[in-house]
């Protein structure tokens, strides 16, 4: 039985080759100058680079706002979809994922064009709306999955014990759906921090996000500084996954 754990070996090797190695390369590059000498200058450059710092802050702000917006809109939708008395067909669920099959960039361009037609100037508002629109399915789907497989008898038991509907929701349904919310947050937050093309299209290049700055550096062969910037993004995302992983265990444990 235990021998079967070795089945993960091929994937483990794959991960080392294509995930760990690139990560190490990012660290290595960020600690070198263009001619390959060891230096901290890329790191210190970031902390004195006002543009990069403000973009970094803005990217995190936008990603947080976008994630919050997706939960706010996506949770009720997922809740309704998972409620058998409100929605019976599985097609409605698929309808929410279907837009993903039309190329994201094409949809983003069309959204920007819609804003233009409505006379709304492109800026932070349109950026948030467009991103939320692009990532909403990623939030709805995991929450829906979690709610759909949830044991309904918990909510019924709470009701029988005299909890009011809003108490049932906040004290039973909501905590039990947290693992879905957490994987939704992960699937929305991570790509929004690092996105670049979408922000360009939705703001007509007025607002740059961190992903764009990294891409510009790499495109201009400034590999080392680009790697240092990527490293900071990795650290931020690494921290969030750590907290989320922790929260996940606690909510699951607490619920049981």
């Amino acid at each position: 039985m235990n021998k079967r754990s070795s089945w993960a070996l091929p994937y483990f090797i794959f991960l080392v080759l294509f995930v760990v190695m690139p990560l190490l390369l990012i660290v290595l590059y960020s600690l070198q100058d263009a001619s390959g000498h060891f230096t901290f200058s890329n790191i210190t450059k970031f902390f004195t680079d006002k543009d990069a710092l403000s973009t970094f802050a803005l990217s995190i702000e936008v990603a947080l706002e976008n994630t919050a917006l997706c939960i706010l809109i996506g949770y009720p939708a997922a809740y309704i979809l998972a409620d058998k008395s409100l929605n019976k067909s599985a097609v409605t669920v698929v309808l929410f994922i279907l837009p993903m099959w039309v190329n994201a960039l094409m949809r983003t361009l069309a959204t920007a064009e819609l804003f233009n037609m409505a006379g709304i100037t492109l800026g932070k508002g349109t950026l948030l709306f467009g991103m939320c629109y692009d990532y909403l399915p990623f939030m709805i789907y995991p929450i829906y999955n979690q709610l759909a497989k949830m044991d309904k008898s918990y909510a019924e038991a709470a009701q029988d014990l005299g909890a009011k509907p809003h108490e049932v929701f906040w004290k039973v349904t909501m905590p039990l759906s947290m693992p879905g919310v957490i994987s939704g947050i992960m699937m929305v937050f991570m790509p929004t921090v690092s996105t670049f093309a979408i922000s360009e299209f939705l703001t007509n290049n007025k607002i740059k996000l961190f992903g764009t700055i990294i891409q510009e550096n790499i495109n201009n062969s400034m590999w080392n500084y680009g790697a240092a910037l990527a490293l900071f993004m990795l650290i931020i995302i690494g921290i969030t996954t750590f907290f989320q992983g922790k929260g996940d265990d606690e909510t699951v444990g607490g619920a049981i």
């Binding site: 991960l15 995930v19 990012i26 992960m186 990527a230 690494g238």
Partner: peptide, 9 residues
């Protein structure tokens, strides 16, 4: 490790 795959650039 699985989580970190999401960040791979």
């Amino acid at each position: 490790l699985l989580l970190f795959v999401f960040l791979h650039i």
